[in-house]
Design a binder for these strands. Structure first.
Lengths: 216, 216
DNA sequence: GGCGCATACTGCAATCTGCAGTATAGGGTC
DNA sequence: GACCCTATACTGCAGATTGCAGTATGCGCC
């Protein structure tokens, strides 16, 4: 009898358990690998989720041992499978982004041009590293079938998104670097380069008219 | 005397206060508009942040009244300005994504093909709506200067990113829709369309070789 | 005079994060 | 054979955050 709706981390856990049994440690480890780029969660929270799934009756536990050290093995129950399938039938919530670097861009008039440049450079570097991680993963899946061969086709869909996502960040960082290249500082360009700002805001894309101008 | 490092929401608040004074309600409102697409925060938390900023000495308060109803006006202190500038000199953390829809894609073998199609369709719709919101905002800034004319050049940088971001989601959703178009169900394609999955994973992009194959 | 929406917040339970801490297993090394 | 390092296998706790509900006044309109 479910007490409360599991979190997304909970459904991810159920999704892993749908294929085979895992120990708590293994589950926590799996959710900290590449999936965390799609659904971030702290190590600590993944164990807490398991306890709640257990209370709700969605998973069962048994103990195994390596010498004197115990570990808990989790398996999914029929109720857990049904809860997962039921969730998949509900409407999705839109993706959200937490982009500290972009917050720094917005507030960069309170700092130096070097701060802004450093933010763009680091953002680019991190995106390159992540893109390459997913590119390597794509090669790995393609060659070996990956850790979840039966989900290869689904991982392919997600992997393609992630690579494109990081490529978009890289492109944007490059473009933004060019935009700020001739700024004298982080404050003045609004006046001295007004025309340029207008160009930035009126690209070749279709810009819709409308009253519902949501402000920042 | 700072007790603890402010959160990003705290720095956003300081960033707004750097320009002029705001009431708590106005601050909470501003942080719930478009910025929340860049740095999400719950309404409730924005008030809590203000109390912590006050305790840390980064903001000062005064009371104003409309009839009998009070409201608290916040202004930034020199310490607050310094804390904001100091933060801008520290290294950025990489952006993170919370993509419930992509989690559903990964686990879609536990549900129906219709579930998966619905997820893709809704994700696409939401992205289109958001892209248009930012496109309208671009037009609004271009014409009127926006709510923060002195930060027009910075909003332009961020706005361009957001439009590209939603466009990437739309492109991906379209592509993914085509990929699954001839799937008989969410489970089988791995075997029946093995060649296709290989194509998905080996696009025209440079795929690096390496041992550090980070797994999901 | 009453309705509905905007203003202006606070309380609370549950959850989540970040950091630290505990302890055993297993392999290499001098 | 003693030591060290890394992996395994978690738990405790304070503070932060979310989501939901609740309270109450101001103001325009019909």
């Amino acid at each position: 009898m479910p007490e409360r709706e599991p979190s997304i981390t909970g459904y991810l856990t159920l999704g892993l358990l749908a294929g085979r049994d895992w120990s708590a440690y293994q589950l926590a480890e799996q959710l900290g690998r590449g999936v965390s780029e799609l659904w971030p969660s702290a190590d600590r929270g993944r164990y807490a989720v398991l306890n709640r799934l257990h209370k709700a009756g969605f998973v069962e536990t048994r103990q195994e041992h390596t010498g004197t050290r115990a570990r808990t093995i989790y398996s999914i129950t029929p109720e857990g499978r049904e809860a997962l399938a039921a969730w998949l039938r509900t409407p999705v919530r839109p993706p959200t982004v937490e982009f500290e670097g972009m917050v720094r861009v917005l507030l960069s008039d309170q700092g130096s041009l070097d701060d802004l440049r450093a933010t763009l450079a680091r953002t680019r570097e991190q995106a390159v590293a992540n893109r390459e991680m997913f590119a390597r993963y794509a090669a790995f899946i393609s060659e070996t079938g990956g850790t979840f061969p039966e989900r290869k086709h689904l991982f392919a869909l997600a992997n393609t998104f992630m690579i494109g996502h990081y490529e978009h960040i890289i492109s944007w960082a490059d473009w933004a670097g060019q935009q700020i290249a001739d700024w004298p500082d982080t404050v003045a360009p609004a006046e001295t380069h007004g025309g340029q700002v207008r160009d930035m805001l009126a690209p070749g894309r279709e810009v819709l008219a409308g009253d519902d101008t949501s402000e920042w």
